Computed example of a mutant assay.
Amino acid sequence: MFGPLGISLAPQVRASKTLTRWIKPFANWYVNLSGYRKMGLRYDDLLVEERDDVQRALGRLTERENYDRTFRFKRASQASVLHANLPKEQWIKPEEDIRYLRPHVEEVVKEDNERKVWDAISVERRK
C-alpha cells in the first residue's frame, strides 16, 4: 500500500475481480483524459525528478532507456510548442506504457533502508 512512489491501492484492487471490473473503466478514462500518451510520454516520465531517489534511479537506466526517455521528452516538448498532440500512430499504446523506472526507484529505496539499518547498529565490546 505504501511504496516509494506514494500510496497505492492497486494491489488490493487487482486482487479483487469485482473491484477491478468496476474501477478499470474509470482508470482507463482518467489515463485518456490526462493526455500524456497523446504527447508520446510514458507514466514513469511524469515522476518528479527532483526527488533524490528518482535522480539516483535515473542514473541506473541503460543507455538505450536514457536515449528513449530523452527522445520522448523532446518530441513532447515540440508537440507542446505547436499546441497539438502527436499523430495518432505515434501515441503510446497501453501495452507500451510499461513502468521502466519504478523497479530502479524501489531498488534505491530498499538500499537506503538497508543502509539506515546498518548505520544504526551499535557494536559493543565483549567483556
Rank of each mutant, 00 (worst) to 15 (best):
T20H: 15
R21E: 15
R21H: 11
R21Q: 15
W22L: 11
I23Y: 05
K24M: 15
K24Y: 12
F26E: 13
F26T: 09
A27V: 14
A27F: 09
A27S: 15
A27K: 12
N28H: 09
Y30F: 14
Y30V: 13
N32H: 09
S34I: 13
G35A: 06
M39D: 05
M39S: 04
M39A: 09
L41T: 06
L41V: 07
Y43Q: 08
Y43T: 10
Y43S: 15
D45Q: 02
D45L: 01
D45E: 03
L47D: 04
L47W: 10
V48F: 13
V48G: 11
V48S: 10
E50S: 09
E50K: 07
R51F: 12
D53C: 15
D53G: 05
D53T: 08
D53I: 07
V54G: 04
Q55D: 06
Q55F: 05
R56G: 02
R56C: 06
L58Y: 07
L58I: 03
G59L: 08
G59I: 02
G59S: 13
R60M: 13
R60G: 05
L61V: 05
L61Q: 02
E65P: 03
E65Y: 00
N66A: 13
N66M: 11
Y67C: 05
D68P: 04
R69H: 02
T70M: 08
T70S: 08
F71L: 15
R72P: 03
R72I: 06
F73G: 05
F73A: 10
R75F: 11
R75M: 12
R75T: 09
A76R: 02
A76M: 11
S77I: 14
Q78F: 10
Q78E: 13
Q78W: 10
A79N: 13
A79Y: 01
A79T: 01
S80F: 12
S80W: 07
S80A: 09
S80I: 07
L82P: 07
H83G: 09
H83Y: 14
N85C: 06
N85Q: 13
L86K: 05
L86S: 07
L86V: 04
P87Y: 11
K88I: 10
K88Q: 14
E89R: 11
Q90N: 09
I92K: 00
I92Y: 02
K93V: 08
K93L: 12
P94C: 03
E95R: 07
E96I: 08
D97P: 02
I98M: 04
R99V: 03
Y100I: 01
L101E: 02
L101T: 03
R102G: 05
R102M: 04
P103R: 01
H104C: 04
H104I: 02
V105L: 01
V105D: 00
E107C: 09
E107D: 14
E107L: 13
